[in-house]
Each structure stands twice: as structure tokens, then as C-alpha cells.
């Protein structure tokens, strides 16, 4: 560690920690504990999905067939790519390459925006097809009442996920801004790491939403 980076590291050490190592460990562990609260938050919705899929099996098949399979699949790929660029941003700052970090963060934001745009197109399509739950909901097939519930859960789950994507865009943008202002270095980059953890978590949720919503009834069409 050079003298200047050591000075910087001491500057970033908050008063109540003994050393940087303790601070880093606490911050990473805190983020993980936060993420398991997020898992339980989404867990409530997964529980509702599971119980109702068991009770209203056919309606769930029907509903799943009205998902836009291609947008769902492309969005899955988009999020995986954004996870890659995010982890590369963390790698870059670990190596002290600030310029590369900024580029990778910017690309991550672009992927996230692409995801939101595709999601918006998908919602718009459902809106036109009268698939928004509520008075305007119309479904011609069997058991429309429970198909409507499938759509309720679809919008609630993807809606809360999209909210997390938006928060993620905000966080990554903040990291980009702070990195441009020279806040981070090879010795101090906890916030970028934690933002990375958050972003991968958003990807993780989608990895499960994709089969549960898009794939589970798909084969009847194909």
C-alpha cells in the first residue's frame, strides 16, 4: 500500500471501526442480511403464486400462455448481460482501473434501461389485450376469474421486480457519479461491491420469475 492510498483508506474508515478489514466485513455482511430480507419479501409473493398454482392449475396454464415469451426470454438475457458488466465493474475497481469501472457501470445502466423499455412494451401489449386486472379485464377462455388472479400476481411480482430495477438504476448511477468524482480506489470500494450484490439479487429474482411466469404453460402453444 502506498502512502497516499493508506491516507485515503484511513480517511474512509468510520470512527467506530477498528480497521478497514472490520469495516469491509461489516458492510458486506450487512448487505447480505438486507438481501435475505428481500428474499423473504419476494417469498410472500412466491408463496401466493405456489398456493394458487396448486389450487387453480388450469387457470395458471392459461394465464402463462398469454405471456409474451420472446420479450421475457430476451429480458432474461439482458439482465444476465447486465450482471456480467456489473461484476466486471467491481473487478475493475478492485484493480484500481477507474476509467474501466465507469464504462462498465454505464453499460450496466444501459442494459437496465433496455430491460425497463422491453418491460414497458410488454405491459402496453397486455393493456391493449384487456389483460390488466380490474373492470376492463376480459378473458374469453376457461375460468376467467382465476386467470385474472394469475395476471394480478404477474403484475404484482414483475411490478415489484421492476421497482427494484429502478432502484438499481439509481444506485448504479450514484456509483458512476461517485466514481467519476474519485471516491473509489483499489483500497476502498465497498459501496460498488454492495451495489453489485444488490444488482445480482435483482437478476436472481428474475431468473426465477422467468420460468414461473413465462415457461410454465408455454409448451401447449408450441
Amino acid at each position: 500500500m502506498s502512502d497516499s492510498s493508506e491516507a485515503l483508506a484511513t480517511h474512509e474508515l468510520r470512527h467506530h471501526f477498528e480497521n478497514m478489514e472490520q469495516q469491509r466485513g461489516a458492510s458486506s455482511m450487512g448487505m447480505w442480511v438486507f438481501l435475505i430480507t428481500e428474499i423473504m419479501f419476494f417469498g410472500g409473493m412466491f408463496m401466493a403464486y405456489l398456493a394458487y398454482r396448486y389450487e387453480y392449475f388450469l387457470a395458471w396454464q392459461e394465464g402463462s400462455q398469454h405471456m409474451n415469451f420472446w420479450i421475457g426470454t430476451v429480458n432474461t438475457a439482458v439482465l444476465i448481460c447486465s450482471s456480467l458488466t456489473m461484476v466486471l465493474a467491481v473487478l475493475a475497481i478492485q484493480q484500481g482501473r477507474r476509467r474501466l469501472t465507469s464504462i462498465m457501470l454505464a453499460v450496466t445502466i444501459c442494459f437496465a434501461i433496455a430491460f425497463m423499455v422491453l418491460k414497458g412494451m410488454e405491459y402496453h401489449e397486455h393493456w391493449l389485450a384487456h389483460e390488466f386486472p380490474g373492470p376492463a379485464f376480459h378473458f374469453a377462455g376457461i375460468d376467467p376469474r382465476h386467470v385474472e388472479m394469475f395476471f394480478v400476481l404477474y403484475f404484482v411480482m414483475t411490478g415489484f421486480h421492476a421497482l427494484h430495477v429502478l432502484i438499481g438504476i439509481g444506485l448504479v448511477s450514484t456509483m458512476l457519479y461517485m466514481n467519476e468524482r474519485g471516491h473509489f480506489s483499489a483500497d476502498y470500494h465497498n459501496p460498488i461491491e454492495n451495489t453489485g450484490l444488490y444488482w445480482h439479487f435483482v437478476d436472481l429474482i428474475w431468473i426465477y420469475l422467468y420460468p414461473l411466469l413465462y415457461l410454465i404453460g408455454h409448451h401447449h402453444v408450441g
Binding site: 458486506s28 455482511m29 442480511v33 438481501l35 435475505i36 423473504m40 410472500g44 408463496m47 396448486y54 389450487e55
Partner: peptide, 26 residues
């Protein structure tokens, strides 16, 4: 940090409690 691994395992364990115990009813 080994404890962080514990945190992750605990998260998935509790999620499975929620899902499995509720499904015993359904």
C-alpha cells in the same frame, strides 16, 4: 467471512419453511 455463508443459507432455509409449511395445508 464464514458467517456470511450462514446468512445466505439461513435466508433460503427460512424461505423453504414459508413455502413448505404452508403447502402442508394446501
Amino acid at each position: 467471512v464464514k458467517t456470511t455463508v450462514l446468512v445466505i443459507v439461513a435466508g433460503f432455509f427460512w424461505l423453504s419453511i414459508l413455502l413448505l409449511m404452508t403447502m402442508t395445508d394446501y
